[in-house]
Nucleic acid binder design. Structure first.
Length: 509
RNA sequence: CGGGGUGUAGCUUAGUUGGUAAAGCGCCAGGCUGGGGGUCUGGAGACCCAGGGUUCGAGUCCCUGCACCCCGACCA
């Protein structure tokens, strides 16, 4: 019985990550295109859930969705020098179409600032101060020819949302940019159960063309940082042409032509990578109940008596209906036929395949399903079932009467969501050091920790940090309002801090 | 784009000094089988990455490509 094993985290973290995502049924497949993956039904549902959560928050803020083209005319790229230099190396170009060479090549969008700016004027949406703020977003995929792809964390084509908003004043723009950062943090912490640090990127880490970049950073189980979403203040940078003349302007209350302030913000399918890396264990991925496409799977236990099996299956269906509070049960054709699902307050799946319980159990473990319920003829005779959680030990299995099961499941889902967040938070907080000197900083990074330090603000120090700690980077300035870096020495250079706030240092994905 | 590695069945791999392919998992059929991948029997499945070359004969030896993976630099 040679099992397909998952490399333990402690032994080789990158291999472990590859193993758990590879073993999760229907999560993803490699594709024929370099660095691109096929999102399986599980990944697609996870992304759909994230999208739904975020979309409803965005609607509360008044953001509308639109959809722009995938291609950008090459000439657009001549407008924003810094932006072009930032993205040119990783852009794919379409030179031929319709069997002939195109007069002007099209770039496959790596991000859509240039198209949004065009749309603002083309659509006539920005003419008066009454048109502002203009709050729009799009869900799409973009393409960046990165040197080193990693499934979910950095794929050549990735799916994301990109919001592009205009405001009459800089203050309003900044306020909204930060509001989105809060939204990202809320999504991450309350939905994905991943604690994040909110902060501002140092100048050298800014989005090309931005005047300010704000980020949420999560700590993965190996202590590396992952940038999970960014919100950029672009100010008027994309709205002025190469000649300095406004490309977008509106008439304000005083009847003056005015250039608005622009922000853009995005979060991508990298969030799924963060999810797996944060919560996964040596048995596979673990999905927090709030994002999980299926909260609970009922595993009927079948014997050799067909009539008994029929009764067990019927009881499983009744139980699924009462847990999910939905009467519709429909078949699901996944890796094999024999699954059924209900939707409602929570999604309950029945694994009615005629395989052994061990197979069904393992399938669910590898898929990260929060709760399993085992139900056989003997349980049925006692009007009970066994409830097991993905994140609890087998000793913690609960025997529960069928009538009380729906409430027990609801309670367990809520508790497990909290537990996952609390675990990750505790681990994160334990792993942030405040080193006094460079030696202590090096040690902290070697041990997979982050460090909160003062920084002298120089490029030399950035280089020195990276070179002498094998990849340490400045992640973001602490966002907690504390100004405790004044007069403090930078542990890397030994010089005075150039900023009022301290900055987080970590190795990163 | 530098450094290293690997291409043989759906997956993981074995293939001796060159003689036209093997195992485990998975899959299909059928037994026995109730709680973390059970077991027995039978079966299907591979122009050995591509193109050249050496040879009576190449998965194996020699060139040349291509692809993928890992470690760095770049990034959501």
């Amino acid at each position: 019985m040679a099992k397909q094993l998952i490399t333990p985290r402690a032994q080789n973290f990158p291999q472990w990550y590859q193993d758990i995502i590879a073993h999760a049924p229907d999560l993803y497949d490699e594709s024929p295109v370099t660095g691109c993956i096929t999102f399986g039904s599980l990944a697609t549902k996870l992304w759909a859930n994230i999208k739904q959560y975020m979309d409803s928050r965005l609607r509360e803020l008044g953001v509308e969705n639109i959809m722009l083209p995938t291609l950008i005319p090459e000439s657009f790229f001549q407008r924003e020098k810094e932006h072009v230099e930032g993205f040119a190396p990783e852009v794919a170009v379409v030179t031929h179409a319709g069997g002939t060479k195109l007069p002007e090549p099209y770039f496959i969008r790596p991000t859509s600032e240039l198209l949004f700016v065009d749309w603002y004027t083309r659509s006539g949406r920005v003419q008066s101060h009454r048109d502002l703020p203009l709050l729009v977003n799009q869900w799409c995929s973009v393409m960046r020819w990165e040197k080193r792809p990693r499934a979910f964390l950095r794929t050549t084509e990735f799916h994301w949302q990109e919001g592009h908003c205009l405001f009459p004043t800089q203050d309003q723009c900044r306020e909204f940019t930060l509001k989105i950062l809060d939204l990202y943090a809320d999504l991450s912490e309350n939905f994905l159960a991943i604690p994040v640090i909110k902060g501002e990127k140092a100048e050298h880490e800014r989005f090309p063309g931005a005047t300010g970049t704000f980020t949420i950073e999560g700590m993965m189980q190996d202590g590396k940082a992952l940038q999970m979403g960014t919100s950029h203040m672009l100010s008027q940078n994309f709205l002025l042409g190469a000649d300095g003349k406004p490309m977008v302007s509106f008439l304000n209350e005083k009847e003056e032509q005015t250039v608005p302030y622009y922000d853009s913000w995005g979060a991508s399918t990298r969030l799924l990578g963060a999810l797996f890396m944060t919560h996964g264990d040596d048995d596979g991925i673990v999905l927090p109940p709030n994002v999980a496409p299926v909260q609970c799977t009922i595993l009927p236990i079948f014997g050799s008596d067909a009539a008994e099996n029929e009764k067990v299956l019927k009881a499983a269906r009744d139980l699924a209906v009462s847990i999910s509070k939905s009467t519709t049960i429909y078949p699901v054709h996944g890796r094999a036929n024999g699954f059924e699902e209900t939707s409602g307050e929570c999604t309950v799946r029945i694994d009615a395949r005629e395989t052994r319980l061990g197979d069904k159990t393992f399938h669910q473990i590898r898929m990260g399903t929060p709760i399993r319920i085992e139900l056989g003829a003997r349980d049925l005779a006692e009007n009970s079932c066994m409830i097991k959680s993905r994140i609890r030990t087998r000793d913690e299995a609960v025997k529960c009467s069928l009538s009380k099961t729906p409430q027990a499941v609801t309670d367990m889902l809520k508790k497990d969501q909290e537990t996952l967040f609390a675990r990750a938070l505790e681990k994160r907080n334990k792993n942030i050091a405040e080193p006094k000197d460079f030696a202590a900083l090096k040690t902290a990074l070697e041990e997979g920790m982050w460090a909160l330090v003062a920084w002298d603000g120089t490029k030399e120090t950035v280089e020195k940090l990276k070179a002498e700690t094998s990849g340490g980077t400045y992640r973001c300035f602490a966002f907690d309002g504390k100004e405790d870096a004044k007069g403090v020495l930078d542990p890397v250079s030994g010089k005075q801090s150039a900023f009022a706030k301290r900055i987080y240092v970590a190795k990163a994905y």
